[in-house]
């Protein structure tokens, strides 16, 4: 505010002088001489020369270096992006191949397992059949042996009973003959 007041005072102080100057008349907006033009051209060229050396060179260099850096960074980013895309495609390809391989392995495993299971089933079935047949044979043999023993004991008892009935001793040859005859009859009856 104090500053503004000072400026105002100064401007008001200038007024009488300016008014006097205005009264002199002859206000020509084209006033001036060729010397002002020469001075203007010279001053401009001096400014240009100074700025060319001290300012425009460093500024242009700075701007160009920045642009080069940005261009380089963009190119690197583009190259990195391309590389990343290529790697992604490669990985995807590898992943697909790995998936295919895994699928094949699983299928192979399933097929092997099925084959193995079938083989085990067949083997178990064979063993069961074999065991059953063996058991049946053993049962049959045991049955035949039991029957034989029954027949033999029956024959001995029968002979003893018959001997007692006939009051005579039956020698072993007679007994064997009787037993064999009885067995044959039994076999026929069975």
């Amino acid at each position: 505010m104090k500053y503004l007041a000072s400026v105002g005072t100064i401007l008001l102080s200038a007024a009488p002088v300016l008014a006097a100057a205005a009264e002199e008349g002859g206000a020509n907006p084209f006033a001036g001489t060729i010397y002002q033009a020469i001075a203007a051209a010279l001053i401009f060229l001096i400014v240009f020369a100074v700025l060319k050396v001290k300012a425009w060179g460093p500024i242009l260099k700075g701007l160009q270096e920045r642009e080069n850096r940005i261009r380089k960074d963009l190119q690197e980013a583009e190259a990195a992006s391309k590389q990343a895309k290529a790697m992604l495609a490669d990985y995807e390809q590898r992943l697909a191949a790995a998936n295919e391989e895994a699928r094949k392995v699983i299928e192979q495993g399933k097929a092997d397992a099925q084959r193995l299971a079938q083989s085990l089933r067949d083997q178990a079935q064979a063993e069961i059949t074999q065991m059953r047949e063996r058991a049946q044979a053993e049962i049959r043999a045991a049955r035949e042996q039991a029957l034989t023993e029954i027949y033999e004991k029956t024959a001995v008892l029968a002979t003893q009973v018959a001997g007692r009935i006939l009051q005579r001793e039956i020698n072993p040859d007679d007994q064997r003959e009787l037993v064999e005859r009885s067995l044959m009859e039994l076999s026929r009856n069975n």
Partner: peptide, 23 residues
């Protein structure tokens, strides 16, 4: 000039603008 100060606009002189245009 006659105490009416120093200042103004250089580019409102046709001589200055002509010089700049000539350059």
């Amino acid at each position: 000039h006659h105490g009416h100060g120093v200042g103004g606009t250089a580019t409102q002189s046709i001589w200055v603008t002509s010089a700049l245009a000539a350059v």
